[in-house]
Design a protein around this nucleic acid. Structure first.
Lengths: 200, 200, 200, 200
DNA sequence: TATGAATGAGCGTTCATTCAT
DNA sequence: AATGAATGAACGCTCATTCAT
């Protein structure tokens, strides 16, 4: 009986994964809004109705995925040996770790950006994904604030603003048309910003 | 006869302007994708079919508008007394002028961003608006390159990358959730980046 | 120019009529809820989208039609030489007039009934059609109240209740399985009720 | 072995009851057509597929329930001491008993009505529930016919028509918007009709 | 040039029903 | 007998686009 449940459960998880991957593949190929749920389920080789057993909407897929990514980053952040490092080193490492995770799922970043835009332009209640997006920023903001407190970073510019510029670097790199790795792109900009905020 | 043509021409221009303004008003109020062509023409108090005398599609409106903004910036850029100023001063002034123009039409920036995203993700032929968007960058890139040549800016980072970070500052500020003016936001970041790229 | 508008206007009215008639035909054949908008527009030989140029929803068709019927009844009611007749005569005539009008559009009555049911069971805001439905009742109630005031009808039963029983006669007759004319059916019941409410 | 069968039988009956009650609860709360089978089985805390072990369709639930109600009324009807009472008394008592039973399950009446409508409008085979609905009427018709035979009720109006008007009273009261008890409403109308059909 | 009624592919979503377990 | 994931036809509805006037 327990096995039965397990088997079903496994099958369910499998279906969810299949759908997610089909969705991401198509999002990457044809863009988010040009991918219909029918497209996704066709790619996943499942019935249309099945989608709604797993997700509430297309956006829901992203919400799920973002949650997983945030969790991964946060976990890494927590396990850093914070106290032995300068804020600059700390920031660099978290920044590059984030970059690597984003790079791995690079084509999802644009999707979060559009989602964020939509929620920024329409004055509706803040959807849950924004909260988790904040998660990204909160990690960086904490590090920057620490750097300011320790006298490593300039204080004449609010920590949130500095955070925002880091954040925008990821976005810009995702859409960059330059002939550059995502990672290389992002490293250059990290250098500029660090030089721009370090005291001394 | 010439007058007649002129009158027609003026009337035509007027309709185009009316449509553009109706569109922008609604885009700002309800978002781009939630504004239908019928909405726009209703707001413009013109028939639906008339739209297609002036534009090919909704995106076309943006393309037009962007062209105008670029032209305005370029004009200002050209008329600057370049030779008397340092590249830093020059860059600052053009940057802030651009910021003011964008601020005036702030809600259109997000629209360009989505347009750019779309065209970045889909590997289709490059649409014309991207070319004009490049216009933005080309102006900045020229100034930065000049600064590098004159030894004012660091050379270990490619001019295009620096350009891109300036560009992303505008985007980020447009979507910022911080309690800050667009202009203030952008000035802070200008300071960081300038400090990050100036030699000495 | 005025002619152009007229022509268009006429065409529009024609389309609306075509849709209404297609709808009523199908409602009568297969029932209201089993008739889809696609069915209607197929029967009307028009595109699906065209439906929404004329109606907001399927219910809207009924709302329209009911409005017209109410108007017809009300008009007749107003033109009666009220003062020369007893309330019994008055009531009889209006009742039978209403019956004839309903009989003419007999198969729509069931639809109003379902509509009324739906709105009675769901606690939502009262839709507009209910208001017009009230119109039916208000005419009868006025006559009954007059009869009570003039001492012709019993007063131990509230006028609204008497009104309601008249109303229900129409409904019941519409669904009757008896081998009887709608009109005959309804006349029998009129007799019973009149005998049941007349004093003396 | 017999016990085992009994146990199974009891369990089966229990499930059927649980489903019926869950269904009626939801029908009352959210209406018949807005209640899905999934809703019902969720409320019943049973698997979706289980529904089909007991019922063929949603309508089937009503069919069953109606059968039970009819049986209850019929039982009461049979046990009346017919011979000692006038037809008026007899009719009143059965009428009020029926009213009480309906009142107890008031929200199901509308459902029977829609079912009846549907079957009245569509010329398909008569579904079973209509037959049982006839049951209602047959009881009343018998009493009325008896009254006519004994010279208590008027004969110029067919018994079926009188029956029908009684029937419609229940329907109307179920949907009434008046500020009146179902029972009070129904009693008023009983009075009118009795006065309308009694000789002398 | 201006019009707006007509269009229909396409959307997201629902849900009764099936069937392997 | 009980399950619930899978199903897909069908729904109401939107909207960019066309074209006869």
């Amino acid at each position: 009986m327990a096995e039965l449940i397990n088997r079903r459960e496994r099958k369910k998880l499998h279906s969810k994964k299949v759908i997610t991957q089909a969705a991401l593949k198509l999002f990457g190929q044809q863009g988010f809004s040009d991918t219909s749920i029918a497209d996704i389920m066709n790619e996943a080789d499942l019935g249309i109705g099945t989608f709604y057993n797993y997700f509430q909407s297309k956006e829901d897929i992203l919400k799920n995925l973002l949650g997983e990514m945030i969790a991964e980053i946060y976990q890494a952040y927590e396990s850093f040996p914070k106290d032995e490092k300068s804020s600059t080193e700390f920031l660099s490492e978290v920044f590059l770790l984030t970059a690597r995770i984003l790079d791995k799922n690079r084509f999802v970043l644009p999707l979060f950006v559009s989602a964020a835009q939509k929620s920024a332009m329409i004055k509706e209640e803040q959807p849950a994904e924004t909260e988790s997006k904040m998660g990204f920023k909160r990690i960086f903001e904490a590090i920057i604030r620490r750097g300011q407190d320790l006298g490593e970073f300039r204080k004449d510019i609010p920590a949130e603003v500095i955070t925002e510029i880091f954040h925008s670097v990821f976005q810009a790199a995702a859409f960059s048309r330059l002939e550059l790795d995502f990672l290389t792109n992002v490293e250059y900009k990290l250098k500029i910003i660090l030089d721009g905020i370090e005291l001394k």
